[in-house]
Design a binder for these strands. Structure first.
Lengths: 183, 183
DNA sequence: ACCTGAACACCGTTCAAGT
DNA sequence: ACCTGAACACCGTTCAAGT
């Protein structure tokens, strides 16, 4: 049973969920895989590259969710909620995704999809890019703090997140290009 | 010349700015202070506590800026810009502040001031708290990513940040309690 | 009270050598 | 091609003992 990048990635996700980002080490991962530390470096060039792959996998889980056939604010909200859900489903997932060094294919696909949806709504390329940026920055900022201090109950943080998302969406709706509310 | 918490904190800030958060270690800090590693633990209980103190100091720099006597969106914008400036003025300042474990006195003062300003504008306590949350989450999300991938020029990221901040403020302005535009 | 000396239990990464 | 063995250069934290 040979080691492959997907096998290493899978074990990395499991380890992350068990010990968190601060407890995650290549040596623990090697032990889990029944292999010496150095072996990992044949499949991934560095710990950071491996963590980037984990981050991209998490975003990939969000990509699996379908976007409803609805108006653009609802579509955008569903994409944002899907990514938040995927991040919260893994220990320190938000911090991992938000501080990922180089975006992988799933991350690019997710952001392209969000931008595309906003462009469909009538925003020009520049505006769509900036609007997608505002949404993801709010999401990242919120989720990182939410996951760092798990002081409130999930239902409570969900409501607060929804409030903020509605605020951002209201702001986007007020932009000249989308005030018509096309599609 | 004895070691005191402020002296340690000062050296920590200097070290952080020189080597960044990933390069920051208690051992390097001890060397700079001409002391053995263990000595630091007399003044700070852990590396994290020290980093939290650094984070709080950065927020303190933002608190030094005066808030203009203007309408609330301008006041909020000035506070947000001040904190972003303070974070960007230090290596990995955004990540450090956003992932700080326990908020210090300056952090509490900053958020209280922002909430107060929004309450003055006519928001009830709950709304003001949530509104301050949206603003800081957007700020943290944006600044963390901005500082992680310094791909664009500062003038460009400033403009993009301003765009997003205007969107959030527009969303907040559209809330029932503030649509009158009091103060 | 404050610091040293020295240890403990770890890290990420590299690379010759094996198979 | 893929992994071992073993090293290199580090970590954060603790704590008896010194002053």
């Amino acid at each position: 049973m040979s080691l492959t990048p997907p096998v290493v990635l899978d074990a990395a996700i499991t380890l992350l969920d068990e010990v968190g980002l601060d407890g995650f080490s290549t040596r623990k991962l090697a032990t889990r895989l029944g292999v010496r530390v150095g072996a990992l470096y044949w499949h991934y060039p560095s710990k950071q590259a491996l963590l980037d792959a984990v981050a991209d996998h998490i975003v990939g889980e969000a990509n699996a969710a379908a976007v409803p056939d609805d108006a653009w604010p609802e579509q955008a909200a569903s994409m944002i909620h899907a990514l938040r859900g995927a991040m919260l489903a893994h220990a320190d997932g938000a911090r991992l995704v938000a501080t990922s060094h180089t975006p992988g294919p799933s991350s690019r696909a997710w952001i392209d999809r969000l931008r595309g949806l906003l462009a469909e709504a009538g925003m020009d390329g520049f505006t769509a890019e900036n609007a997608a940026d505002v949404l993801t920055c709010y999401l990242n900022g919120y989720a990182v703090e939410e996951q760092a201090h798990t002081t409130h109950a999930r239902a409570e943080t969900d409501r607060r997140f929804g409030f903020g998302l509605d605020v951002v969406l209201a702001g986007l709706r007020s932009l000249p290009a989308t005030s018509g509310g096309a599609r």
